[in-house]
């Protein structure tokens, strides 16, 4: 098995009283696209924040390139973060800067390159996502899909080793969804990246992922290559893949019996 870039080991995480993750372990292989799927509201974004060191687990560990993200000093954590980047669901472009300045932002913050070189790099990155013509637009003038592509250009500006995509396909029309799918795949190959894609869009992600984890009920309920997943005999996995309304993941939010609630005892 190839070298892994992120290793989550027996991690337990809870928010207040609510347990989000109960003892999960997963591996992200270097150079591969790993998809993490699961129903909405189970904290997939939280997982990315845990890997990025923005949140700390209650127990267990998260290793990124061999360093425990939550044990290293703040300074070292910032160094680690320069090698990873994250594409947020909303894009999270800085609304007071143009697209160009947004992409140039990490370069200006972390390098001492002169403006000429920065401009070259920014144009190259924007070209890669097909937005070079939009360099002087403000984020508010971009469509949702364009904003996400611009944010992607910013995410790859520093040539990171790892990109985490948080719901990249949510709320996209079929065309921009297709664009993003092919972008993720081609960037991963061209820049020799490792990608983690968190999503609940089953078909898109199964077409590009090398390895898939399915999260539900605080645990990993299934893992494997897309083909293995499709043929999984787990009810949970099948419910998720086929989008059945009721099954092991119940349709109803946990509540007392309807009869009891209405009539009383």
């Amino acid at each position: 098995m190839a070298e892994s870039i992120v290793t989550v080991d027996k991690m337990h995480f809870s928010r207040g009283e609510r347990v989000i993750y109960d003892d999960i372990s997963l591996n992200v292989r270097k150079g591969a696209i790993t998809a993490i799927m699961g129903p909405s509201g189970i904290g997939k974004t939280t997982l990315l924040k845990l890997i990025g060191g923005q949140l700390a687990p209650d127990s267990g560990s998260v290793l990124f390139q061999g360093s425990n993200v939550h044990k290293v000093s703040r300074h070292k954590l910032y160094e680690l973060r320069r090698r990873m980047s994250m594409l947020f669901q909303s894009g999270a472009l800085f609304t007071n800067m143009t697209v160009f300045d947004n992409v140039a932002f990490p370069l200006r913050e972390h390098t001492h390159l002169n403006e000429d070189i920065i401009r070259t790099i920014v144009y190259l990155k924007l070209e890669a996502v097909g937005l070079r013509g939009a360099y002087d637009l403000m984020p508010s003038e971009l469509s949702g899909g364009m904003a996400r592509r611009a944010a992607l250009a910013r995410a790859i500006a520093l040539d990171p080793d790892l990109i985490m995509y948080d719901e990249p396909f949510a709320g996209q029309d079929p065309i921009s969804m297709g664009v993003l799918v092919s972008l993720i795949k081609s960037l991963n190959k061209a820049l020799n990246l490792t990608s983690i894609v968190v999503t609940h869009d089953v078909t898109e992600v199964l077409s590009i992922a090398d390895y898939v984890y399915i999260l539900a009920n605080k645990k990993i309920i299934g893992e494997g290559t897309p083909n293995e997943i499709r043929q999984s005999d787990s009810d949970l996995v099948q419910q998720f893949l086929e989008g059945k309304a009721d099954g092991p993941v119940p349709f109803h939010y946990p509540a007392q019996d309807l009869r009891t609630a209405l009539i009383g005892e």
Partner: peptide, 22 residues
Amino acid sequence: GLMKATEQLSSLEMMAVDPLRR
């Protein structure tokens, strides 16, 4: 607050830029 809501602060953190400083 809006920067927080639109994940700009988180995104700064992930870019290894300290929002406190920046």
